[in-house]
Amino acid sequence: MDKEHLNMRSLDVGKLAALNNYISDLSDPEGSLINILHRAQDLFGYIPINLQLHIARKLKIGAAKVNGVVSFYSYFTQEKTGRHVVSVCMGTACYVKGAEKVLHAMLDELGATKGKATDDGQFTIRDVRCVGACGLAPVVTVGEKVYDNVTVDDVKRILDEYRGEKRGH
């Protein structure tokens, strides 16, 4: 781990303040660690090591414990995500209808690695657990937007919708 990981000053002050406020309103902060991490990820987009350390100090618990929880749950990410997070549902209903092909087509189209932001920082393609919208399988979500009955042929069109955008989300 390099020093940059532990540079607490690289964390956005405003966001940190919002997180601190959230924590101080909790009656059982340590027992609410998962809720706190959700809030942190909402604010920062991901939960880097220094942020985990900040939370650990705030709750007066070991950083290893925080990291143990962050790394245990698939919903939390320690990696910076791209501007657009494309989630391909990998529930069984989507799988039997070809979600795996859609995922590979997405990765091929962008030359990306699953779960890692593309070099230009525009996209992160990831597979997610069943989103419970099996009637629409295969399902792809980009941010809040849901795409239903996605086939390999739709991949380029979907990505193109976001490629031109210059502003952040």
């Binding site: 998962i34 809720n35 959700h38 245990f72 749950y73 698939s74 919903y75 939390f76």
Partner: peptide
């Protein structure tokens, strides 16, 4: 309410 975080 407590939130899960994706663990079967």
């Amino acid at each position: 309410i407590r939130l899960g975080a994706g663990a079967f």
